[in-house]
Design a protein around this nucleic acid. Structure first.
Lengths: 143, 143
DNA sequence: TTTGACCTGTGAGTAGCTCACAGGTTTTAG
DNA sequence: CTAAAACCTGTGAGCTACTCACAGGTCAAA
């Protein structure tokens, strides 16, 4: 299979196939006649696997590690379970954060119903936002 | 005020101050003696405003636009309300998506309790993930 | 005067792609 | 047979919102 065929088979952009190949997730052979990449059914499985893993929140390095372990006939599954649990916890944190944010946003929106727009006067840029009190928890930035 | 003073005043990294300055959100003057950036109380207000807006999910270009409108004595608030509503809708979509994901993850985890790890045999890389059925909605990537 | 903390601009790194470019190959239509 | 379209190649840049590293200039305190 050529790049586009593989891409279509997995429902991704051909550039993603090339990118994953560069990143070492896929290891096609070469057609010596024209130097084209040659993918097989195994690559298609790997690519589909990678996409599923991405949906689950695995990073590319993690996925590469899983694939490499599989290549070496190690069972990657215990590691998958580990990372998966961590991801689940992360997802739950993200949900909680977003729900907090939504709560504050809807509250702000209803509060703003009563506020005039107000032309900026050099002191208040836009009260709608200035009045937003920033007791919101840290969003995860360093520093 | 110098860079670090402003940064401390707004609770951000000095590099963020420099970055925002490069991006045109802050417009300090120069001390001709030493070529240092000179910020004033207005800049502090702008920076604080920008940080609040970031918490609300505004992008830097959006924030710059708001600040520029304010500089031109336009009231940016109707625009703020607009973008804000859109952001709220987005946040709600994100929440729904993550909740979907969490549901699928917990379901998968409990299903995996009963599955053996299984050493990869060239056909199944890791059933834990391969068995994940990908009827999950599009995560927002372009195609 | 030396030390240390600050300042300057620029450039690279982060994640996961996506796209642009310039040139080679293969397929298809005429 | 040929011309054009559609594919292939590798590399490098762009996206977001910073953060950090680097090399060198400035300034306050000891």
């Amino acid at each position: 299979m050529k790049v586009k065929e593989l891409a279509v088979g997995a429902g991704v952009n051909p550039d993603t196939v090339r990118f994953y190949t560069r990143e070492g997730l896929l290891k096609p052979t070469r057609n010596p006649d024209n130097n084209y990449q040659q993918y097989d059914a195994e690559d298609l499985r790997r690519l589909r696997f990678a996409r599923k893993a991405r949906q689950l929140g695995f990073s590319l390095p993690e996925i590469r590690q899983i694939l490499e372990q599989a290549d070496d006939h190690y069972s990657p599954c215990p590691m998958v379970r580990d990372v998966f649990q961590q991801r689940l916890a992360e997802v739950e944190r993200e949900i909680a954060e977003l729900q907090q944010l939504r709560k504050r946003m809807t509250a702000a929106l209803s509060a703003w119903q009563e506020m005039p727009d107000g032309t900026p006067d050099g002191h208040t840029i836009c009260r709608l936002i200035e009045r937003w009190d920033d007791t919101v928890p840290d969003t995860g930035n360093k520093g």
